[in-house]
Amino acid sequence: MSTAVPAWAAADSYTAALRAGRGPLFLRREDGWLLPLEVERWCARADAADLDVLDRCEGTVLDVGCGPGRLVAELARRGRAALGIDVSEAAVGHAVRLGGQALRRSVFEPLPGEGRWGTVLLMDGNVGIGGDPRRLLDRVTRLLRPGGLLIAETAPVDVDERAHVRVVDAPGTRAAGAPFPWARVGTPALLRHARGWEPAGRWAADGRSFVALRGRSASSRAEPPKSTAVISSQRAGKPSGDSPVASR
């Protein structure tokens, strides 16, 4: 069943920021607290910290919440099989124009290659998607192949919080649409939530924090469900062979 696209994904402020390649843009909690969003970095080419993450990826790569697509575009330049997913049409369009493969889809909807991805990425705070890290980790387990790798970017402070937020382009701006659930999770909290995962590394670069987790082996997980979804922002052909990524 399809998941409703959050109102912020089509918000004028978010779309305008992606098109311009710059902010300001914030997540605003209902108590007024603001989290700046790094639009300029997201719209630029992959930086040194990003490249280090991509060097650690194994097999086919699924970038959850790919945004404007700097990571899937870099993986495409490397000849790696990769797919980005994002709920924002503007973000998916930007990723495709950069040369990456991308699909407008929520991580909680059916996806291509379920149970066969070698690596799942949760970058740029996307471990907060849905406001429930344990639920998200459980979903990622079903996306990865047995023993697959999750690389998550965590908050650079020790935090574990849930909130409802809105996207705004200035502190006093009235945000359109309903608030949506989000989480901020530091490395210690993510490791607490990652029951059943094997820690596979943690590191910091350029003020950013990362964790690698190894998924369950074939002997300790149920058979993953098969997905009939295909890549479409430009609806693509069905995946074939061992690769979960359809060719355009």
Rank of each mutant, 00 (worst) to 15 (best):
M1C: 09
T3G: 06
A4Y: 01
A4P: 12
V5A: 00
P6H: 00
P6E: 01
S13T: 15
S13G: 06
S13W: 11
Y14V: 04
T15A: 15
T15E: 14
A16D: 15
R19N: 14
A20M: 03
A20G: 13
G21N: 01
R29I: 02
D31F: 05
L35N: 05
E40C: 05
R41F: 02
C43T: 08
A44I: 02
A46C: 00
A46H: 05
L51G: 02
D52T: 10
L54K: 03
C57I: 01
G59Y: 01
L62R: 07
V64G: 08
G65W: 13
G65R: 04
C66A: 12
A73D: 08
A76L: 00
R77T: 09
R77V: 08
R77D: 11
G79F: 01
R80N: 06
L83N: 00
G84S: 08
S88E: 01
E89P: 07
V92F: 01
H94G: 11
H94Y: 05
R97F: 07
G100Q: 05
A102D: 11
L103N: 05
L103K: 04
V107N: 02
F108V: 07
E109R: 11
L111C: 11
G113W: 01
R116I: 07
V120F: 00
L122E: 03
D124W: 06
G125F: 00
N126T: 04
V127I: 15
G130W: 07
P133G: 07
P133N: 06
R134F: 05
L136C: 04
L136G: 03
R139M: 00
V140G: 09
V140C: 13
P146S: 13
G147L: 08
L150V: 04
I151V: 14
T154A: 14
A155V: 14
V159E: 14
E161I: 08
H164L: 13
V165T: 09
V167E: 07
A170L: 05
T173F: 06
T173N: 06
R174Y: 08
R174G: 12
A178W: 12
P179Y: 13
P181Q: 15
R184Q: 13
L190M: 06
H193A: 11
R202T: 09
W203M: 01
A205P: 06
A205F: 02
V211G: 04
A212Q: 10
L213E: 03
G215M: 09
S219G: 12
S220N: 10
S220V: 15
R221S: 09
A222E: 14
S227E: 00
S232H: 15
Q234W: 15
Q234S: 15
R235H: 15
R235L: 14
R235I: 11
G237D: 11
P239M: 01
G241I: 03
G241L: 10
D242M: 10
S243Y: 00
S243A: 03
V245H: 04
V245I: 11
